[in-house]
Simulated assay, not measured.
Amino acid sequence: MADDKKQTGSPDRDRINMSEDYEVQYWTKALGVSREKLQEAVDAAGPTADAVRRHLAQ
């Protein structure tokens, strides 16, 4: 599903879309991880930022 840039807000900000380069760049920097590590975390925990943070903290 494409990221609708016209509809921003909490639901969009709380999810990590690995298909959008600008989002991957933001989240890798914000979480201090590589793209590969971020992809592993999203695959394991799901696309929500909170779930990814919890997974990375383990």
Rank of each mutant, 00 (worst) to 15 (best):
Asp43Lys: 13
His55Trp: 09
Pro47Gln: 11
Glu40Val: 02
Thr8Leu: 14
Asp14Cys: 07
Arg35Tyr: 00
Asp3Trp: 12
Val33Asp: 12
Ile16Ser: 04
Leu56Asn: 12
Gln39Leu: 09
Arg13Asn: 06
Met1Asp: 12
Asp12Trp: 09
Glu23Gln: 15
Gln25Ala: 15
Leu38Asn: 06
Val42Ala: 14
Pro11Ser: 01
Ser34Trp: 03
Glu20Leu: 13
Thr48Leu: 08
Gln39Pro: 00
Gln58Trp: 00
Tyr22Ala: 04
Tyr26Cys: 10
Thr8Phe: 13
Val52Phe: 01
Ala2Leu: 09
Glu23Asp: 12
Glu36His: 07
Tyr22Ile: 00
Arg13Leu: 03
Leu38Lys: 05
Asp14Arg: 13
Thr28Ser: 07
Thr48Lys: 09
Met18Lys: 05
Arg54Met: 01
Ala49Leu: 15
Thr8Asn: 09
Lys29Ile: 00
Ala57Cys: 03
Lys5Trp: 13
Asp50Thr: 12
Ala44Leu: 04
Thr48Phe: 06
Ala41Ile: 03
Ser34Met: 00
Ala2Phe: 07
Thr48Glu: 07
His55Tyr: 14
Lys29Phe: 09
Ser10Asn: 03
Lys29Asp: 14
Lys5Ile: 14
Ser34Pro: 09
Trp27Pro: 08
Arg15His: 13
Ala45Thr: 14
Gln25Arg: 15
Ile16Phe: 05
Lys6Asn: 11
Ala45Asp: 12
Val52Ala: 03
Ala2Gln: 15
Gln39Glu: 13
Gln7Tyr: 13
Asp4Ile: 07
Asp14Val: 01
Lys29Arg: 15
Gln39Ser: 10
Ala49His: 10
Asp3Ile: 04
Ser10Glu: 05
Lys6Tyr: 12
His55Ala: 01
Asn17Ala: 09
Asp43Glu: 15
Asp21Phe: 04
Asp12Val: 04
Gly32Ala: 07
Lys6Met: 08
Val24Cys: 06
Gln7Ala: 14
Tyr22Glu: 07
Ala51Trp: 01
Thr28Pro: 06
Ser10Ile: 00
Gln39Cys: 00
Ala45Leu: 10
Trp27Leu: 05
Asp4Trp: 10
Thr28Asn: 05
Val52Thr: 05
Met18Ile: 14
Ala45Glu: 12
Pro47Trp: 06
Thr48Arg: 11
Gly32Asn: 10
Asp50Asn: 12
Gln7Pro: 00
Arg54Ala: 10
Glu40Gln: 12
Glu20Gly: 02
Thr48Trp: 02
Asp50His: 07
